[in-house]
Amino acid sequence: MTESICVENLTKNFEKVAAVDGISFRVRQGELFGFLGPNGAGKTTTINILTGLARSDSGTIRIGGIDCTGNPRAAQHLVGVVPDESNLYPELTGFDNLCFCAALYGMGRTKRKARAHELLDTFDLTPAADRKFAGYSKGMKRKLTIAAGIIHRPPILFLDEPTTGIDVASARQLRHLVSDLNRSGTTIFLTTHYIEEAERLCNRIAFIVSGRIVRNDTVEHLIQPIKAKHIMRIACATMPNDIHAKLTHAFSELIFTITNEGFIRVESEKPVHVGPLVRFLEDNGAEVTEARRMRPSLEDVFVNITGIAADAMRKEKEKRGGGQ
């Protein structure tokens, strides 16, 4: 299969800090490639370098078969970019913003108007077409920014944190739209800190931590090693402070983790019996409200590989950009 993006030994330093530290990866044509990592891992810097908004210190880049190493703007006609923050013009209406973006790609007046109407319809923004962008809600702004990114039907799309800071319904709609775009043949390079989102959408995922890619594989292959594990999540209304120590002592064959959200996560190589666990918890002063068996997820892989709690990563991001 042809490669849409090919990156070799890419590095970028800001003063003495290595923002991107010798990363290499390939994105195949038609693939939905996830780029996952905590804040400051180097995701946005990588996108900026690939799209010509930043210069690399070393390494090679090929986009759509074009060598962009010396000339980062060489493949700009092939790519669409949706940045992590909406960067459309607040004083223009939604329709005018789309028409303007289309004009930047050389589309004629009739074509750009038709395309703008088509995208406003696809993204359910037709009723707001004549409203100024400044008056849009966060979800609407994200949708219009994505629409602007695909106005010229690019074969390669860079999506930087597309669902950060928007409500659940809008996020779900955006995920459907991203899936549909990919199904229609667009190669998508997606950065996100929502692991479940990456798991649901992506064919392949690279984990980036401190500027380095620590793992790059298909979702299936990433999950394979932990697929056989048994995971349970127990929710408690109240629990004593020393419960973790008590559980570990009483059930030495199980691994317990207390999450930031107050859940007890139980991991085991063998099936976990719920009854004895719940009885033990209640005998020791915990008020159990729910116990649920969980399917091993990409989040578990991420935590295993990076040592970073996914919850912490998500909360930190949401503190900056608003909640999903």
Partner: peptide, 14 residues
């Protein structure tokens, strides 16, 4: 306000 980035992404000469 970052809207200049949108212009920098356009496939026209600088």
């Amino acid at each position: 306000n970052r809207s200049f980035e949108r212009l920098l992404l356009a496939p026209i000469s600088f």
